[in-house]
Computed example of a mutant assay.
Amino acid sequence: MKKLKVSLPFMAIVMAIGLSFATVHHTSSAVSGYVNDPILGWTAVDVACNPGSNNCQVQFVDEEGTPQGSPLNVYAEEDEDSTPLPSSSTEPVTIER
Rank of each mutant, 00 (worst) to 15 (best):
S82I: 01
S20Y: 11
A22M: 01
Q57P: 04
T23A: 06
C56A: 07
M11Q: 01
V47T: 09
H26A: 15
N50Q: 11
A30G: 15
T27S: 10
F60H: 12
F60V: 13
T83H: 01
H25V: 14
P71H: 12
I17F: 12
S87W: 06
A44L: 11
T43L: 12
A30M: 12
D62G: 10
P86W: 03
E64Y: 12
L19A: 07
I13V: 15
V31A: 10
T66P: 00
E77P: 06
Y75F: 12
A76L: 11
A22T: 06
M15C: 14
M11S: 12
V74K: 09
V74R: 07
A12G: 11
N73P: 05
G52I: 04
G33P: 02
G65S: 07
I17R: 07
P71I: 14
N55G: 00
S32G: 12
H25P: 08
S87R: 06
S89G: 01
G69A: 10
P38E: 01
V31K: 13
P9M: 09
G65T: 05
P71L: 10
L40M: 11
T27C: 01
G41M: 06
V31M: 12
F21E: 12
V74L: 04
S70K: 11
E80M: 04
V61C: 04
Y34L: 00
I39S: 09
N55S: 10
D37K: 03
V47M: 02
T66L: 13
E63I: 06
P67F: 05
G52D: 05
P9S: 12
V61F: 00
P71E: 14
G41C: 03
Q68T: 11
G65D: 08
N50T: 13
V61G: 07
Q59V: 03
Y75C: 04
S53D: 14
D37A: 05
P67A: 06
L72W: 14
A76D: 11
D46R: 03
H26R: 09
